[in-house]
Amino acid sequence: MKTEISLTVNGEELHAFVEPRLSLADFLRDSLRLTGTHLGCEMGACGACLVLLTGTPVHACLVLAVQAAGQDVETIEGLSERGAIGDLQKSFYERNALQCGYCTSGMIVSAHALLAENMTPARADIRDALSGNYCRCTGYEAIVDAIETTAVRRKSQVEAAE
């Protein structure tokens, strides 16, 4: 039996009828065609499916769509369109911090959340923030570099503005 839910996705209010067993990730990908949220392990280990639920990163594979009722969901598409991660994307591109790109959405969601909380993370903080994100291509060094570069650039922009 389907359940009616109302929620906000990337700033847009939505109403939908969903099966209780439908994960938020499948709802985003299959019902809304927001395929930037990737599915890897579907058990909360790989971090490819991270989205923001009321501003904090969560695994969309471990949240049921019905549990997201009444809440704000933001995906990699929403972050990208409102310009929140343009500099992160640029640093990832410049530093070659992705090869196949499967993990990248999740990496960027984690990085975005880290930098929102800590403007000057040490490399150890960055690695800790990414501890739940698997990348099987890069060996992580380039990803940590790209996030570190973004943090430094953001800090110098803030200082220049002051």
């Binding site: 971090g47 990163p57 695994h59 984690s110 739940g132």
Partner: peptide, 12 residues
């Protein structure tokens, strides 16, 4: 608490 899983898991 920092040893419990990863940041996104700790959020839920």
């Amino acid at each position: 608490a920092p040893h419990v899983a990863h940041p996104a898991i700790r959020n839920r």
